[in-house]
Amino acid sequence: MRKRLATSKPTKGSSGKTGSWRTFRPVVDPEKCNACGMCALYCPEAAIDEDLRVDVDFCKGCGICATECPKKAITMEREKR
């Protein structure tokens, strides 16, 4: 058997930190949030964890969470760089 096979290793951040792609950042209003978990359900990147905190290193800023939030507790704010 060959010693070196071209196999990729599973790594977090295989494409670098995709948070740098973002134009809009999701900001959660804890007053309005009722922790229903819809944002975490629909996040394609799994960037929202069990405690419903957004991982800003990985969030691409697509805005699905803000659209799908039934309480409208998430707003998309322009990223300042």
Binding site: K12, K17, P44, E45, A46, F58
Partner: peptide, 11 residues
């Protein structure tokens, strides 16, 4: 599916 895939935003 680990974080930071190279998919488009909202894929």
């Amino acid at each position: 599916v680990l974080k930071c895939t190279s998919g488009c935003a909202g894929c």
